[in-house]
Simulated assay, not measured.
Amino acid sequence: MSALSSSLSFLIQTLGGLYIMAVLIRFLLQLVRADFYNPISQAIVKATSPLLKPIRKIIPGFGGIDVASLVLALILQIVLLYVLLLIGGYSIAAVPFPSVLISSLVKLGIEFLNIYMFSLIIIAIASWVAPNSYNPGLMLLHQITEPLTSRIRKVIPPLGGLDFSLMVLVIIIITLKNFLGALA
């Protein structure tokens, strides 16, 4: 692979990955019914709406779940994989669609886990550096992670003021990432 194609591959993978992450975050924000007046939520909505609106006309939501966001993320991941294969010198016909679909689903699963993992790490660091902060980003991260951490707190309550739910959730996420990584 030449230096130009390597640089182009890196650029496309980074920009595509960031946009896919924004679509997944939008899905999560709607799933947990996060504050959509938050400026970060508004930015994510504005960034993802141009591609999401046409898909929503075809694919409606189901039971409060924004299926269109998941479909858009999957389509974008499949397109991204095919573009990266083309840049790498592979023929599209040489790579069967089922393997690209499975790879895309695994990558999206890992991306979901990464979103939660980094959210938990940022929350943990912020609790040491700036406890009780009302930063809009931290508020969204709390809203995304609270449904999972509250379930863990029911099983393992805070002990002596220490909340172990974040650590338990990180261990679960790492285990799931290792499992999905073995599938990829």
Rank of each mutant, 00 (worst) to 15 (best):
P50N: 12
H142I: 01
I123E: 15
K57L: 12
A3P: 00
R153Y: 05
P158M: 12
F27M: 05
P60F: 04
P136K: 06
A130T: 15
S99D: 11
S5V: 04
F27Q: 04
L84C: 08
V23S: 13
L162C: 02
W128S: 06
L120C: 04
F112Y: 13
I156G: 04
S165N: 10
F10V: 09
L108T: 01
M117S: 13
V170I: 14
G63F: 10
V106R: 05
L86E: 08
P131V: 03
A73F: 00
A43R: 12
H142F: 13
S103H: 03
P60E: 09
P136A: 05
I58P: 00
P54Q: 07
L86A: 14
L4Y: 11
L24Q: 12
V23P: 09
I125A: 14
P157H: 07
G63S: 10
L74M: 12
Y134N: 15
Y134S: 15
Q30L: 09
L85H: 11
G181A: 10
A47I: 10
L162H: 07
L8W: 10
V32H: 03
I152S: 08
S41W: 00
S119L: 00
I171N: 08
V71I: 15
P60Q: 06
I115F: 07
K154R: 15
A124M: 03
P96D: 03
L120Y: 04
F27W: 10
V71T: 13
A94C: 04
L86Y: 08
I92E: 01
N178H: 13
I12D: 06
I174W: 08
S119T: 13
I156R: 01
L31G: 06
S104C: 06
L108M: 09
S119N: 07
I156C: 01
P98I: 05
G61L: 01
A73V: 02
F164P: 00
I44Y: 03
K154E: 13
L169P: 09
I87Q: 10
K53C: 01
D163F: 01
L81V: 12
I40W: 11
G109S: 02
I75W: 03
F112I: 11
V155T: 15
P98W: 02
A47R: 05
S133F: 00
A22D: 08
L74N: 09
P98T: 08
L141I: 02
L113E: 05
M21Q: 14
F112H: 08
P147G: 06
L8Q: 07
L76W: 00
I55Q: 07
I172M: 12
L86I: 09
S41V: 03
I171F: 11
N178Q: 15
I75N: 06
L166E: 14
V67E: 03
P147S: 08
F97L: 14
R56D: 10
L81M: 11
K57S: 13
I92A: 14
N178M: 14
D66Q: 12
I125N: 07
L85N: 14
F112P: 02
Q143A: 11
I87W: 04
V45R: 06
I12G: 11
Y90G: 11
Q143N: 00
R33Y: 01
D163Q: 04
F179V: 14
S2N: 15
L8D: 07
A184F: 02
L176K: 05
L159F: 12
A184W: 01
S49L: 03
S6W: 10
D163I: 00
A130D: 13
L24H: 07
S41M: 02
I20D: 04
Y134V: 07
W128P: 00
V23Q: 13
S5M: 08
I92F: 05
G64W: 00
